[in-house]
């Protein structure tokens, strides 16, 4: 289980996250909703150690991880799909996957499983990442993170700028991972997409988790969306 306890984090003297606490259990999808600038992406980066915690702590399966160097965090099994994909654009699809595999010394069998999930990538293995379509790039970003065989997967706006068929594909992959027991933290702007897959929804405002509800509770009180997301 991933757990954040009273976390403060930010960039230099600018504090973004304030006394933030949340947890994500294995086999559940926790969705984070909030306005732009609420601190959702900073929260993801803090978990990955890319933004250092100033106070509070982050725990993974009982092990404190916020004091580890950033490069050790993925080796514990936390996969990260950053906003904007952040592929290694000058590398081929195969090389991008290789970077994912190397993180936890996974082999060809893991790569096969991942390629079976996204067969379109198999035909593009020797193609440079920046020559792929937007949807294919998102598949690659997801596949690269899955090469770690993560126990926790962080997705930062994975459907941003994608066509509906591609969104369905990514959603199906996320749901399949939940079935496998992966704890998923999903930052998403599309509320309807969140409601279809989420087990719990947490609203982030001014760097704090202000409210956690189930999708049915959210359906029952849609004013929450207006209050915290502005839709």
């Amino acid at each position: 289980m991933l757990e954040l306890r009273n976390l403060d984090a930010g960039y230099g003297k600018v504090q973004v996250l304030r006394d933030l606490s949340l947890h994500a259990r294995p086999g559940e999808i926790l969705c984070l909703l909030g306005r732009n600038g609420a601190g959702k992406s900073t929260l993801m980066k803090s978990i990955m150690g890319l933004v250092r915690a100033q106070a509070g702590s982050i725990w993974l399966d009982g092990q404190r991880i916020d004091q580890l160097p950033a490069w050790q965090v993925p080796r514990l099994g936390i996969g990260y799909i950053p906003q904007g994909r952040r592929l290694f654009n000058e590398m081929t699809v195969a090389e991008n996957l290789q970077i994912g595999l190397m993180a936890r010394r996974k082999g060809a069998d893991v790569r096969e499983n991942v390629l079976n999930m996204f067969p379109r990538l198999r035909d593009r293995l020797n193609q440079r990442a920046d020559t792929l379509s937007g949807g294919e790039q998102q598949m690659l970003a997801t596949a690269r993170a899955l090469c770690l065989e993560p126990g926790v997967l962080l997705l930062d706006e994975p459907t941003e700028g994608l066509q509906p068929s591609m969104i369905s594909l990514i959603r199906a992959a996320v749901v399949a991972l939940r079935k496998q027991g992966v704890a998923i933290v999903l930052v998403e702007q599309r509320v309807e997409a969140v409601l279809q897959v989420a087990d719990r929804v947490t609203f982030v405002e001014n760097g704090q988790c202000v409210l956690t509800v189930t999708p049915s509770e959210l359906h029952a009180d849609e004013s929450l969306l207006h209050r915290y997301v502005g839709v």
């Binding site: 050790q72 950053p82 952040r86 290694f88």
Partner: peptide, 14 residues
């Protein structure tokens, strides 16, 4: 090459 292209993402992959 990964470090050259994107230091932060390289760290996020160990």
């Amino acid at each position: 090459r990964a470090t050259q292209q994107d230091r932060e993402t390289a760290q996020a992959f160990g």
